Computed example of a mutant assay.
Amino acid sequence: MDRLLLLEPSKEVRFQGPYTEIVTSYMKLTNPTDKRVGYKVKTNAPRQYTVEPNNGILEPNQLQVLSIRLQPLRVPNTSTTYHKFMVQSMVVPDSDVKSEDLWRGTHKADVIDYKFNCILEAEQIQNGIETSPEHMQMTSPISNHSPINIATLQTTKLNNVQGIPKTNGISSMVDKLKTVVTEMKEMMKKSDERLLQMNNDSSKETRMLSEKLKARESESAMLTQEVTTLKERLQQVEEESKRQISLLTDKLQAQEAQFEQFRTTTVQQMSEKMEEILKQISNSETPTP
């Protein structure tokens, strides 16, 4: 099956810190075909990322930009090393179908998947740490464009702190590094609390939407029942009308037959009476010999 979408980037979704707040990356989807193409986005870490819009239908040659948001990271337990994204696409079979109904009952053979790795690019972590030559010698350089594992980074920092000889000015530097680690832990704790609050808010909104949907479904079921009842009543009225019309037609035909019989009998009687009267007149006018 030919490709239905052109994606940019085509293999990796990259993010650039700082990661103590929401970070956004973008992806372009283009439909190069002459058909309508539906798409939806999946990830193996749905609590860590949000995608807007995460599904839709692209007209021929239409471009759609997706906004991918990375939630604040829970350092050091969270790593994006194994985070994946997948964009699924398929030809829209019906011009009237909606995007939310497109993927119901689809066959795997009709779907084309595009898979992406999630790359978290390193940030220069200064945040109160002195950038003196002594400090530069204590920490190994990190490329601004290389993937980073936050857990490995913090472990390396802590090992460096423990390995520094606490003499002269270096002792104060160690204290500063410990302070930075403490601040990072506090930031991690606040990020966890914020993420938990966002999850709770999201759960509340989901429950509210679910309740509204159930209410709408109940109203729809009631309306459907009322329509069904009205149809049944209309059918009964129609059948009763046909029955009444049939009875009236039979009665009218019977009355017409009776009238025709009465008319025939009356005409015959009148004819016989007239003949009798004419005979009497004829007899009375004949002379007596």
Rank of each mutant, 00 (worst) to 15 (best):
E134F: 15
I22N: 12
P72Q: 02
N117P: 02
K178Q: 07
R47A: 09
Q261S: 15
Q268L: 14
D96R: 11
R207S: 11
V51S: 08
E272R: 05
S282L: 08
K251F: 10
Q269W: 09
T30V: 13
A221T: 03
Q261P: 05
K28G: 05
T20E: 12
S241G: 07
E232Y: 01
R233V: 06
S246N: 09
R36G: 00
T81K: 14
I142Y: 09
T106N: 10
A151C: 11
R47T: 08
A109V: 14
E8C: 09
S203K: 05
R216K: 13
T30W: 04
E260C: 10
S79E: 04
I170E: 10
V37N: 00
S218I: 09
P147L: 09
H107P: 01
K166P: 04
I57N: 00
L29K: 02
Q258M: 10
I277W: 00
R233C: 05
T156L: 06
E238L: 07
V75N: 03
E21G: 15
E276T: 06
L278G: 01
P147Q: 04
V180L: 12
S246E: 13
V51Y: 02
D96K: 12
Q154F: 03
E260I: 09
E232K: 08
K273Q: 11
A151W: 00
A221S: 09
E121P: 03
I150V: 02
L58R: 07
Q124M: 11
E52M: 02
N168Q: 14
Y39H: 00
T206L: 14
K273D: 05
V267H: 00
D34L: 05
D201N: 08
E211Q: 14
K157E: 07
Q126H: 13
I150D: 01
L252M: 11
E256M: 09
L6N: 06
P53W: 04
F116C: 11
L278M: 06
K157S: 10
H83V: 13
T182D: 13
T81N: 04
I281N: 08
N283G: 10
L177Y: 01
S67C: 06
L6E: 11
T288G: 05
H135I: 15
K108A: 15
M184Y: 10
K212Q: 15
V65N: 09
F259H: 15
T266R: 12
R36I: 00
A45Q: 03
I148Q: 05
P133R: 02
R36E: 02
P141A: 15
D2I: 06
L120N: 08
L153I: 11
S246W: 01
N55A: 11
E260N: 14
R3M: 10
N61Q: 07
M86S: 12
P93E: 04
L5P: 04
L7V: 10
A122S: 15
K178A: 02
E134T: 09
Y82N: 14
T43M: 03
Q71T: 09
T131L: 15
I245C: 08
P18Y: 07
Y39N: 02
I281T: 05
L213W: 13
E52Y: 01
S146K: 12
N159G: 08
L66V: 07
P72F: 06
L5V: 05
M188D: 13
Q64A: 12
Q225R: 06
Q244P: 01
S25L: 01
F15H: 02
E59C: 08
N61I: 01
L213Y: 12
I68T: 02
Q225W: 00
S172Q: 10
Q258P: 04
R47K: 11
E123C: 08
Q126R: 15
L223R: 11
T229E: 06
E100M: 04
S132T: 15
